[in-house]
Design a protein around this nucleic acid. Structure first.
Length: 771
DNA sequence: ATAAGTCATTTTTTT
DNA sequence: AATGACTTAT
């Protein structure tokens, strides 16, 4: 068995111990994924049926990678493995079993935005103080309750929880939770946490269902076990109860999701729950240089809560860790991107070798600007995902409502988009009626003729209902792609956007085309998890059509996708992402930026030792991503909400032993003094007009803003623009108010496209232009 | 009912 | 600095 030859002795033991509970504690860079994938391959080689293996991960990306690597060893048989995220696998199972819990099979999955919107409505309807009951806070309370398997009733009966809520001045959260659960149920919707909670309830209340899946999945593997919460662990424990072939892989030192309910206790308890567990510790690091490995150990040792473990490596010393102090966030961006440029030149690196890691998504901007200046291609992971764009959400809402008429959030989103004369007043009335009669909003609209209160908007409502119903009829006749295309056209969305010739409008139109292409791909993909026979629990075979490619299945899947899941590795680009998103990845050159107190560690994490330790683990994860070149940067000043703040360097820097750090390249400390906002842009010489809307995203567009003289604007002219100072017009496209100018800004901002309709440019002079 | 204009809030990470 | 909620005018 050649695949075993590639492993060291501990790894091989961990792979071949296939019966009984196993815990693998795997330090960073210790070949964790290799062990997991080889283990799966080995299971199959030893005769395990591919349908009987369940592997759970946290991200779709990890699941995909695992599947691909197993496929490399065992071939296409790997496609029948149940490898997926907790959420997607449970969503899939619930799709077949939800009717037992009273949910439709086509249930909607509410994402965080949907959930918060619903909470907002509920808080408003209950006439609660909305400065106290913020959707965010309430959502987090409910979420952590669900992650601990606490339902609305238990929530209201739990002494400790009630005491906490009373103390924070929010005693009504229990009632909101109850109402929220009811509304979700009535809408046939589950939120992310429900996928876990309902899955658990399913296994608990229906012994036959439990029996079915317990015998179906003989081998259960959990990746990133340190990130499981109580609900996830409880489900896994139930599923694996018959065969006890549970293999968990994790590293307590890399637990960074406690805000989502993850608890290291699961790792610590595993040995208690399974006394006969075999534990393997993978401590040899194959990824990083000595300096990096030693620094990582030095940092993590400051945590009290941990399984003692020290990673070591046989690799070379390598370069020391570079520490850089910048004057401001913009300066930091410039220094980092210059270093990338230099490194590329000197050592023939490709863009793919670099990653810039930060604590919060908002930090990416300075780096983007500078990378653009140097013409280095880059890609940002995370942030606003494709599926969160307005136009995509609009189309998806139509699809969701077609599949599940009771989906309240989808309904509210599109009932008047494109505008059809059904305004807020009408919808408020309908909401009151729905709650009075204890039915869904859709039911009210469906019987609009029996509702005298809604008579004014009765006709448009009737038309809308008929349209959605006509879509639903097509569900059985057309495939997901054809139907979606039909809906996008018939709903009027495509038309609305097609008429919008602004650059934004064009890109929205293209996004919708991309969404439709995605649906087409889905209907042709082999990646979809195999279907399960809901009677027997048998996984259906390979035959075409056995994979669930209905529109409903697609919708349930995309809600669980994030931007990070898209494969962006094909193009040679520098990557920018949060540290959370970087878990499991490795790069030759890593920049960890924004190392300032209150930013990293976050000021939110300075209240308790536990929180601070989690930030430290986050730092540990960040530095152990690096193979051979690691750079840490921090800024002396940073802008927030437009205000300049002074910063202290992060305590984590001080925790690294000086022998691992090279701070020779640090610019000399400057006296603290405020800097100009636009360090690299010439300040405007005079104010032109008081307000200029942002140019690449129109907040409140006003046709009143026009250029001094649009007809005169032509290439070669120098103009002044409020925020970016001075630049020359490079290109002019289109005619009339819809003309777009490309402006080459000096001092390194690069090219910016501005639509004349929305921007006012002041012409300074015309540089000689012979054309 | 809609569009434009004014005001107030913003404090992390993600399935 | 940027965005969503609220107000006013049509």
């Amino acid at each position: 068995m050649s695949y075993l030859d590639e492993l060291n002795s501990v790894q091989r033991e961990a792979v071949t111990a296939i019966e009984g509970p196993v815990m693998i504690v795997a330090g960073p860079g210790s070949g964790k994924t290799k062990v997991l994938t080889t283990r799966i391959a080995h299971l199959m080689n030893e005769g395990a049926d591919s349908f009987s293996i369940l592997a759970l991960t946290f991200t779709n990306k990890a699941a995909k990678e695992m599947k691909e690597r197993v496929e490399k060893i065992v071939g296409t048989e790997a496609r029948n493995l149940y490898i997926g995220t907790f959420h997607s696998v449970f969503a899939r199972i619930l799709r077949y079993e939800a009717t037992k819990l009273g949910y439709p099979a086509n249930f909607t999955i509410y994402d965080t935005d949907d959930a918060k919107n619903l909470l907002k409505s509920i808080i408003k309807e209950m006439a609660l103080n909305d400065t106290l009951y913020k959707p965010n806070i309430v959502y987090n309370r409910i979420s952590s309750a669900k992650n601990s398997l606490v339902g609305p009733t238990e929530y209201q009966n739990d002494y400790n929880i009630q005491a906490d809520d009373a103390e924070s001045g929010r005693p009504k959260i229990g009632l909101i939770y109850e109402q929220y659960a009811k509304r979700c149920f009535m809408a046939g919707a589950m939120d992310f946490d429900d996928l876990l909670l309902k899955m658990y309830q399913l296994l608990e209340r229906f012994p036959d269902v439990l029996h079915k899946y317990q015998h179906r999945f003989k081998y259960v593997l959990i990746d990133e076990f340190q990130d499981t919460n109580f609900a996830q662990y409880s489900i896994v424990k139930k599923l694996g109860d018959v065969f006890q072939n549970i293999c968990v892989v994790g590293d307590d030192a890399q637990s960074i999701y406690s805000f989502r309910g993850a608890t290291i206790a699961n790792i610590l308890n595993f040995e208690k729950d399974y006394p006969e567990v075999r534990v393997f510790k993978l401590e040899q690091n194959y990824r990083s240089t000595q300096h990096i490995v030693k620094a990582a150990n030095k940092v993590i040792v400051n945590n009290k809560t941990q399984i003692t473990k020290e990673i070591w490596t046989e690799n070379n010393d390598g370069e020391k860790i570079k520490l850089v102090k910048a004057m401001s966030d913009n300066d930091e961006g410039r220094i980092v991107c210059d270093m990338i440029f230099e490194e590329k030149m000197q050592n023939q690196r490709s863009n793919n070798d670099f990653v810039i890691l930060y604590r919060t998504n908002a930090q990416s901007r300075a780096f983007e600007e500078q990378l653009r200046r140097l013409n280095i291609h880059y890609v940002i992971y995370g942030g606003i995902s494709f599926y969160q764009r307005k136009e995509i959400r609009d189309v998806v809402a139509y699809l969701r409502l077609t599949v599940n008429h009771n989906d309240e959030e989808a309904l509210k989103r599109i009932i008047n988009f494109p505008t059809r004369g059904i305004g807020q007043t009408t919808m408020d009335k309908a909401a009151v009626l729905a709650s009075q009669q204890n039915v869904s909003l859709w039911t009210i609209l469906e019987h609009v003729n029996q509702q005298p209160d809604l008579s004014r908007a009765a006709t448009p409502i009737y038309d809308f209902v008929m349209m959605i119903k006509s879509f639903a009829v097509e569900l059985k006749k057309q495939n997901a792609f054809d139907l979606s295309t039909h809906i996008a056209k018939a709903s009027g969305i495509l038309k609305e956007l097609y008429n919008d010739k602004t650059p934004e409008g064009v890109s929205r139109y293209e996004n919708i085309q991309a969404l439709l292409n995605g649906i087409k791909e889905f209907t042709e993909s082999e990646e979809v998890l195999p279907a399960i026979d809901s009677d027997t629990g048998e996984v259906l075979g390979n035959a075409e059509g056995d994979r669930d490619k209905t529109l409903a299945a697609y919708l349930q899947q995309i809600t669980l996708l994030t931007d990070a899941d898209k494969d962006k590795n094909d193009i040679d680009r520098v990557k920018l992402m949060t540290i959370h998103a970087a878990k499991g990845l490795e790069f030759p050159c890593v920049f960890v930026v924004g190392l300032e107190e209150n930013l990293f560690p976050s000021m939110m994490a300075l209240d308790s030792r536990e929180d601070l330790e989690e930030e430290r683990r986050l730092f540990y994860v960040a530095i152990t991503r690096a193979k051979d070149k690691l750079t840490l940067t921090y800024a002396a000043t940073r802008y927030k909400y437009g205000n300049l703040n002074y910063c202290e360097p992060s305590r984590f820097i001080a925790e690294i032993h000086p022998s691992n750090i090279d701070d020779s390249g640090v610019p000399k400390a400057q006296p603290k003094q405020p800097m100009m906002r636009d360090d690299y842009f010439e300040a405007p010489r005079k104010t032109i007009i008081p307000k200029v809307p942002k140019t690449d995203y129109v907040h409140n567009p006003s046709p009143d803003f026009v250029a001094d003289d649009t007809s005169n604007i032509q290439p070669g002219m120098e103009v002044e623009h409020q925020r970016f100072g001075i630049g020359t017009i490079d290109k002019v496209e289109g005619g009339g108010y819809d003309r777009i100018v490309s402006i080459n800004f000096q001092n390194g901002v690069g090219i910016k496209k501005i639509m004349l309709k929305y921007a006012k440019l002041h012409i300074l002079k015309s540089i000689s232009n012979n054309q």
